[in-house]
Simulated scan of single mutants.
Amino acid sequence: MSEYPQDRLYAGELHMWGNGEWFERNRKLDTPGDRVRVGFTTFFIGQIPDSGLRVELPEVGSYVDFGDCFGRVVWSQEGDADSDEEWEDGDAAPGEAWSDFCAPVEAKVVAVNTELANTPELIVRDPYGEGWLFEMEIHDHKPKSDFNWDADGYAEFIAQADD
Rank of each mutant, 00 (worst) to 15 (best):
Q6C: 06
Q6N: 14
D7S: 09
R8M: 10
R8V: 00
R8Q: 09
L9A: 03
Y10H: 05
Y10F: 12
E13K: 13
E13H: 13
L14W: 10
L14A: 10
H15I: 03
H15N: 08
N19A: 11
E21T: 12
F23I: 05
E24A: 15
E24Q: 13
R25A: 11
N26V: 05
N26S: 12
K28D: 06
L29A: 06
D30H: 07
P32F: 07
G33D: 02
R35N: 10
V38D: 01
V38I: 15
G39R: 03
T41S: 08
T42E: 14
I45A: 09
D50S: 13
G52T: 07
G52Q: 03
L53A: 02
R54F: 01
V55A: 05
E56R: 05
P58R: 01
P58V: 03
P58H: 03
P58G: 02
S62R: 11
Y63W: 13
Y63P: 05
D65H: 13
D65S: 13
G67D: 06
G67A: 08
F70K: 03
G71Y: 04
G71P: 03
R72W: 06
W75A: 00
W75M: 08
W75L: 02
G79L: 02
G79R: 07
A81T: 14
D82I: 11
S83L: 02
D89T: 15
G90Y: 15
G90R: 15
G90S: 15
D91V: 12
D91W: 10
D91T: 13
A92H: 09
A92N: 15
P94H: 06
G95S: 04
G95E: 02
G95L: 03
